[in-house]
Design a protein around this nucleic acid. Structure first.
Lengths: 214, 214
DNA sequence: TTTTGGTCTTGAACATCGTTCATCTTCTGC
DNA sequence: GCAGAAGATGAACGATGTTCAAGACCAAAA
């Protein structure tokens, strides 16, 4: 009559049509969601495989069918975070005026806002990056490159005498500088900047960095 | 005749005069040295309590007599690293000329050099800082403050119209910006700056950040 | 010198991780 | 239906930080 008990449930739920790979992808997605929520709640360092699989509704070993290991799962969470970050930054440049300096300022402030709104996820981004023995996949590197590209574009209009190599270097440096200030401000343990003076310093940095002289 | 077998050895070694607290301090020092060597060799993340105590020549539990936990030991290693860093930066400002901008440039480049020469120790500094649940002791915070103070001093001569609060904010921002660029360059996983262009970007940052306008 | 009391040292035991893998279940193609 | 492949399962493993009861040690009192 009935194939198996499990099939009854699946037919009832209308999942039977789902192909093998679809179920696999669905589990991966559930694991990523669970991992993200845990990171948001307790930070990356507090992430535990048993919590994630429990939340995602699968056995402990299931995580290792979907991903190589916990680090791999974190990288996928980071991938989605980077997507969201780029979307936010893209929106910020679009909303800004046509003046390149305005656009860069908008980028920096949007970066600051995003980091503040998603502290834990944002820290996870660079916590994984500081891990020595894991290899970051190409698609993840490409995401990062794309971020710096957002900066390079307005910068090109300002630093007209710079060739491509130097422009890329300047874009990286500007990104890193903004990143440093934002990072410092989010670590409450060091007496860092916060609130209004923070945004003011960020603006000052961008303005001075984008005004050629000497 | 002899008190105990252990006493013979101690008298022979001339350690008998050492007071209780001296031995305790000596063990702490040995643990810190062992931990530092391990960090230099394998990074903070690869630090293991059993390795350290084995190197230091004490039992596993001995670590927890000398320090609260592994994190506490790491903080003490970081303390010595911060001391060395400040010594290096102080030497750099002294060696530089009297021009405030020159002094700040020298500071930035010395910071870059130090980080490059002590990668693992330097990463340990900020890896611990990003840990959420530990409380950094006051003396450690004071060390960090003192670092930023090195920047504030030449900056005072440049930003004459800034009050103390704004000057402190500017010094923090400048430190954070330089730190961001140095950090990016040391993480080889992201396509970062390196070598000559890196130093050039650093110099550009400092020069532009210290030239008032607008 | 002997005793005594507190302190330090020790390493086995514990709890908690990430990760593996033999076993069973489920799915797909015939 | 059936057989083989693929996936899911969770007990077990190894490694880790941390604890703690038992013993060793030291300085001062007797």
């Amino acid at each position: 009559m009935f194939k198996t008990k499990m099939n009854i449930v699946q037919i009832f739920r209308g999942v039977d049509v789902a192909a093998r790979s679809d179920k696999r992808e669905e589990l991966k997605a559930r694991l990523i969601v669970a991992a993200r929520k845990r990171i948001e709640a307790q930070g990356v360092r507090g992430l535990r495989a048993r919590d994630i699989t429990s939340d995602a509704g699968c056995a402990l070993g299931g995580l290792y069918n979907a991903f190589a290991d916990l680090q791999d799962l974190i990288i996928h969470v980071n991938g989605e975070t980077l997507d969201a970050l780029e979307a936010r930054l893209s929106a910020a440049v679009s909303a800004a005026g046509t003046d390149p300096r305005e656009r860069l300022e908008a980028l920096a402030l949007a970066y600051l806002d995003f980091a503040g709104e998603h502290r834990a996820l944002w820290f996870a981004l660079f916590d994984a990056a500081s891990l020595a023995d894991t290899t970051i996949p190409d698609w993840h590197r490409e995401q990062q490159r794309s971020l710096v590209g957002l900066i390079a574009e307005p910068l090109r209009a300002i630093e007209t005498e710079l060739d491509e190599a130097h422009l890329a270097a300047r874009a990286q440096a500007l990104f890193a500088a903004v990143h440093g200030i934002v990072t410092l401000s989010l670590e409450e343990r060091t007496i860092g900047l916060s609130g209004d003076p923070l945004a003011h310093e960020l603006r000052t940095l961008v303005r001075r960095m984008t005004t050629a002289q000497l």
